[in-house]
Design a protein around this nucleic acid. Structure first.
Lengths: 187, 187
DNA sequence: GACGAGTGAGAACGATCGTTCTCGCGTCAG
DNA sequence: CTGACGCGAGAACGATCGTTCTCACTCGTC
């Protein structure tokens, strides 16, 4: 795997470092070392740190949502169960040893005020996630307001799990989601 | 107000800058300028930036929770209404022009991995908030699980309002909270 | 064999950061 | 009056950062 695409190697190293330690806390030299690159080749692929940060966030956004969608579509059962499976996927994510919250919330808090592209990618990520939940909710036959409620629960679970380091937030959110969903479906 | 306690002036300046732009993005010289201090006096009161960051977070934690508790206790009505008033207070907060999310989530994402005291203060803040909601929930006669659910909704509303810049997340969360609370009270 | 283009390794550069030091001036005790 | 001290203003210091440059070397081509 040392002979992988250099871009991939750089992005892999950048993602682990940026996500694990924060973006400003990681220097380009650390990315160079972790990716086994030379400075020249690093800057050939990403002409500035901002470009690397943006590429890191965009790739993570795509992968994150693809992983979630794959898990949900792999889940059988009626639409209601697939919607609730989102919280199971969150629980698996929270339990990963290097879980440190939402990369987009973290980068938004760190750079959103000074780097507009970071704020834009974070907003886009959250909008896509909310839209995905809205689609699942509609398929389950619940009103759009329920999708918003479940989105809030998921977001709250992510930050709670991050700050407390406790993956049970996913199960708590799932229970609340189930209550809200079944109430909406019964009404 | 120029003759206020120097500590207060420094912390006021630091809070506005740290919260508005992120901690690492603000240099000590910017704090010095904004507070109208000299470097010597700044470092007399806070021997290092870490000390200043910690003091900023601790003061903000206390004020934030005091403001919330004052608003809720000012609200009349039965315990159920006081619990839901938490989300009205959130809505007012979200609508403030310089609202930029939860200072503790932001600093946790930025420095939590490298500065243990920041992670500890963020965790403490979230625990206190959850405990406060647990007390209100118990007073309203709902089970502890409901308190957890409402906490998740509040956390989700904060991050959603921050990233989207849209204060309506508070009203959405309040509606979900009302549904969960009334379901729990009826059951 | 000669030469030009590209590479690896890392030094160098300019900026900025957190922190400390210098210096000139006012103040107050004796 | 004098001398020690405290302060404001800001320069200076060492470290680190993002980015670029140097230089020796390899290699494909005539």
């Amino acid at each position: 795997m040392e002979h992988e695409d250099p871009r991939t190697r750089i992005l892999d190293a950048a993602e682990e470092l940026f996500y694990g330690q924060g973006i400003q806390a990681v220097g380009m030299d650390a990315v160079r070392t972790a990716s086994g690159m030379t400075m020249r080749r690093l800057y050939q692929h990403f002409p500035s740190k901002n470009d690397l940060v943006e590429a890191y966030l965009l790739r993570r956004d795509g992968r994150w949502r693809e992983s979630l969608a794959a898990y949900v579509s792999r889940t059988g059962g009626p639409p209601r169960d697939r919607l609730l499976a989102v919280f199971d996927w969150l629980g698996q994510w929270f339990a990963e040893p290097d879980f440190r919250g939402c990369a987009f919330v973290n980068s938004f808090g760190e750079l959103g005020a000074t780097t507009p592209v970071v704020a834009a990618v974070a907003r886009h990520h959250k909008e896509e996630f909310a839209g995905y939940l809205a689609g699942l909710t509609e398929a389950a036959g619940a009103p759009p307001a329920t999708a918003v409620h479940l989105t809030l629960l998921a977001e709250g679970a992510i930050t709670t799990a991050a700050v407390h380091g406790d993956p049970t937030a996913a199960a708590d959110a799932k229970e609340a989601a189930r209550l809200l969903l079944d109430t909406a479906l019964a009404g």
